[in-house]
Structures are given as structure tokens and as C-alpha cells.
């Protein structure tokens, strides 16, 4: 998604001279196009994420539109207090971009993963988190993010859209595939694993993606889907607490929607072992083979 991101931001920042791009010393072979296009409005802020976020907050008070970029764990956790106080409590228009959400950086190891980013940020005042589910969805999502003039976070990952899937316009919760036997709700590109199962095994699943958190409301389409299928599988490359599982469960419980329920989430590092993103997905039951077994067992209930 990084390529799509840099192309879209290049376009936005070229057109809007108020946009200031700040990077935490990352972006080699990825952001050069933005740097070349906007000159002195592209600033390498060094490895100083705390300062970067506070500087961005200050720029926003002057009507500028700062974008802060780093890999997801570095842009979220190191400057968490700066995000909470200087950006969120002051309700400032700062765009925070985290590349490689979840286990995206795979064998780089635990320091480079962001499994709790949505839990942390979606709990802050005024913050909206945006999560595209495939490369082709990045533009949609960035447009939604830029239409919100408050604190926001973009969680980028890696994912290529299956050829037959069409991308609908942005909504916080969107149906991306229609079916009758099970409802699947996912956050981010891990949904593509489920879609692979569905396509290969001709499962009739109603698939939704959550593209914005916190979830303000569950739409009628999702409610009706769950009532129709009676089976809900939620999946996310994020820890159990504070992800879409908890957010949705609360809303569904409040709306008195009941169903058979299974939640697949990031379990951390069982045995203290590391590997590729695919390896970690397998550990969490989020890979294609595990998902096939889970979905089949839910269908047979």
C-alpha cells in the first residue's frame, strides 16, 4: 500500500500547499517522489517521533496540514503521549501514518509490529483510525481521512485485491462480498485470506470490512446479515482487546443482535518465536488453511 500511498499523497500535497510532510527518518525507496514534488514541505524529522508529533500539532494550529509518517509501531507507541495531549485533546488536524500495521514487518521482529495500535489510538478523544483493506482501497481511505479535519491515523498494510472483487466507495463498515451462510467482519488486508477461502471453496459468505474506528454505529446491512446467517466470524491482525472484535461486540450487544460468534485476533508471540507475516497469521489462525477449518466448522454448527 505504500506505493499507492505515496502516489496519492504526492498528488494531494502538490495541489494543496498547506500540506507539510514529516517523516521519522524513514521512506527510502518509497517517499522520494513526495520529496521531489513538494521540496521544502517535505521534512525529515530525524529519529525523534515525540518531537515530530508535537511539531505537527503546532503546525496544525497555524492552519497547515501536517502528515506524520513512520512505521506503525514507531509512530504510535513512542509518541503516544504527544498524540494524546498535543493532537487529540487539542483536536488538531494532524494525519498520522503508520506503515506495516499488525505483523506487517514479519521477520523484522516484535519491535517492528503494531498489534495494539488501534486499541491505543481509537480510545483517544477525537481520534479516527482509518484502515484500507487492499492496495486499491488506499485512495478511498485517504480521501475519507482528508475529509475529516481532526486527529487521524492511517494503518497501512500489504494486500492485493482479488481480480473479481470490486471496490465500493468508502464507508466505516462496508460489505465487500455478498453471501448467505456466514457473516465475516474483518479489519485490514487479512480479510483477503478469508476471501481466498471463500472463492476457492465456494463458501457463501457475507463479508464486511471495518475501515474506520471507533465504530460509531453498526449499519443496518450488517445487522440484517447477522440476523440472516446467525453466524459471525470477526478477524483482525490486532490484539483481542480494543480491536474491532470488542468494538463490534459492544455495539451488537447494545442492539440486541445475537449470533454464534468466533473472534480471531493477534495472539502475540507464542513460545517467543518470530517469523514472516504469514507465519504469525498461521499462529493466530488467520491464514487461509486455518480459516478454511474455522469457517467450515462454523457452517456445520
Amino acid at each position: 500500500m505504500r506505493k499507492e500511498f505515496s502516489n496519492i499523497i504526492e498528488r494531494i500535497a502538490t495541489a494543496d500547499k498547506q500540506v507539510i510532510f514529516l517523516t521519522g527518518d524513514l521512506g527510502f525507496m518509497a517517499l522520494e517522489n513526495i520529496r521531489d514534488a513538494i521540496g521544502n514541505r517535505f521534512i525529515n524529522m530525524g529519529v525523534s517521533e515525540q518531537n515530530m508529533i508535537s511539531v505537527a500539532a503546532a503546525l496544525a494550529t497555524e492552519g497547515l496540514v501536517p502528515i506524520c509518517y513512520s512505521i506503525a509501531p514507531f509512530i504510535v507507541y513512542r509518541p503516544t503521549e504527544q498524540i494524546r495531549l498535543d493532537v487529540c485533546l487539542h483536536n488538531l488536524n494532524v494525519k498520522i501514518i503508520g506503515n506495516g500495521g499488525g505483523y506487517g514487518y514479519g521477520i523484522m521482529g516484535a519491535t517492528h509490529h503494531a498489534l495494539e495500535d488501534i486499541a491505543v489510538l481509537s480510545s483517544f478523544q477525537n481520534m479516527k483510525c482509518f484502515i484500507p483493506f487492499c492496495n486499491e482501497d488506499v485512495e478511498n481511505t485517504i480521501n475519507a481521512m482528508f475529509s475529516y479535519k481532526g486527529p487521524s491515523y492511517l494503518r497501512l498494510g500489504f494486500g492485493i485485491k482479488p481480480v473479481n472483487l470490486s471496490i465500493s466507495s468508502f464507508q466505516p463498515i462496508r460489505n465487500i462480498l455478498k453471501g448467505n451462510d456466514i457473516t465475516i467482519v474483518a479489519m485490514g488486508p487479512v480479510v483477503l485470506n478469508a476471501i481466498n477461502v471463500i472463492i476457492a471453496d465456494r463458501v457463501s459468505a457475507d463479508v464486511f470490512v471495518v475501515s474506520e474506528l471507533p465504530i460509531v454505529d453498526i449499519n443496518e446491512e450488517l445487522k440484517q446479515s447477522i440476523k440472516k446467517t446467525g453466524k459471525l466470524l470477526i478477524m483482525e491482525e490486532h490484539v483481542q482487546h480494543g480491536g474491532i472484535g470488542e468494538h463490534l461486540a459492544l455495539k451488537l450487544f447494545s442492539a440486541q443482535v445475537t449470533c454464534s460468534f468466533k473472534h480471531l485476533f493477534a495472539v502475540g508471540y507464542p513460545g517467543g518465536l518470530y517469523g514472516s507475516q504469514a507465519y504469525h497469521q498461521q499462529q493466530c489462525g488467520l491464514d487461509v488453511e486455518s480459516l478454511l477449518l474455522t469457517i467450515k466448522s462454523m457452517l456445520n454448527e
Partner: peptide
């Protein structure tokens, strides 16, 4: 302009305000 109370924010915030003039020409 900014509420504070947790130490270590003020110089960054002020630097950001100072830096902004390079773009706003104020």
C-alpha cells in the same frame, strides 16, 4: 495555544510554532 502539564512538550510545540512561519510567512 497549548495546554501543558506533562513536562517535555513545550519546546517541541514552540519549535513547531516557530517552524510554521517558514510556510505561513507570518
Amino acid at each position: 495555544i497549548f495546554g501543558t502539564g506533562s513536562l517535555g512538550h513545550g519546546l517541541s510545540l514552540s519549535s513547531g510554532l516557530a517552524f510554521a512561519t517558514k510556510f505561513t510567512n507570518k
